[in-house]
């Protein structure tokens, strides 16, 4: 996981300067230590993509163990791919252009980078945003599901106490803590290390979260995560 070369950096390529900058602000809340670079708009700030901004952005974000580039519509991907062709070989080998939803994938990738994920882990996090958004229906079904305990399983059910439940910032904090354990833990059936999975559960105040690990070493992880939920994430 954690790389010796420092965290993976991210470049957000959008046709719009505002979208790219806004996404940096949004992701920064959950990933304060990651190099997040906005590469939005043309050189004169119009709608379009700039080869220079993307190329410079990759270099700026490239001091760590790798760079993941997320793009919005068509020409953003073409510009990013072209920028890769012009990079020196050493840097290019550490850069991945990812075709994933910009906002959801960008936030998930930022959290994976913040938790020390390597290039592959950050790319996988971006892809976990999938082609669309998790549906509200799916979250409701998972919420109601009862997981039957099996032998060797450790589980604990806690109630969300903070006002807004597992919204973005607490969810990121939760995923960061989960990522510090090797053991796999699920929350109402979703992987505790997947930011988008956790956020898709729609866990608001008063709902219960069942934390389950079938891992022999999972007890410590389950307890730590359950305790975090019970503290209310420092929120009222």
């Amino acid at each position: 996981m954690a790389s010796e070369r420092g965290r993976v950096g991210l470049v957000f390529v959008s046709h719009s300067t505002k979208i790219a900058e806004g996404l940096v602000d949004l992701a920064r809340q959950m990933a304060p230590s990651v190099a997040l670079v906005a590469a939005g708009g043309t050189d004169d700030g119009g709608i379009g993509t700039s080869f220079e901004k993307v190329s410079e952005g990759i270099v700026l974000a490239g001091s760590g163990s790798g760079v993941v580039v997320l793009c919005d519509l068509g020409s953003a991907i073409l510009t990013a791919d072209t920028a890769l062709d012009f990079l020196d070989d050493v840097l290019r080998d550490r850069v991945e252009v990812v075709d994933a939803p910009l906002v959801e994938g960008g936030v998930a990738a930022a959290v994976a980078a913040e938790t020390g994920g390597d290039l592959g882990a950050v790319v996988a996090a971006a892809h976990s945003a999938g082609p669309g958004h998790p549906s509200a229906g799916e979250a409701a079904v998972v919420d109601a599901a009862v997981v039957e305990p099996v032998a060797g399983t450790f589980s604990r059910t806690v109630t969300l106490v903070n006002k807004d439940g597992l919204h973005a910032r607490p969810a990121a904090e939760f995923v960061k803590l989960a990522s510090t354990f090797d053991a796999r833990v699920s929350v109402n059936g979703k992987d505790a290390k997947s930011l988008l999975g956790i956020m898709s559960l729609g866990l608001s105040k008063g709902k219960s979260a069942e934390l389950v690990s079938t891992d022999p070493a999972g007890e410590r992880a389950v307890n730590a995560l359950a305790d975090l939920i019970e503290t209310g994430f420092g929120e009222a």
């Binding site: 050189d43 080869f51 068509g74 020409s75 073409l78 510009t79 072209t82 062709d85």
Partner: peptide, 15 residues
């Protein structure tokens, strides 16, 4: 062209 076009035509014609 790659540096100045700003749309998909930049990388496409540039390449």
């Amino acid at each position: 062209l790659i540096s100045t076009v700003g749309g998909a035509a930049g990388p496409l014609y540039g390449t």
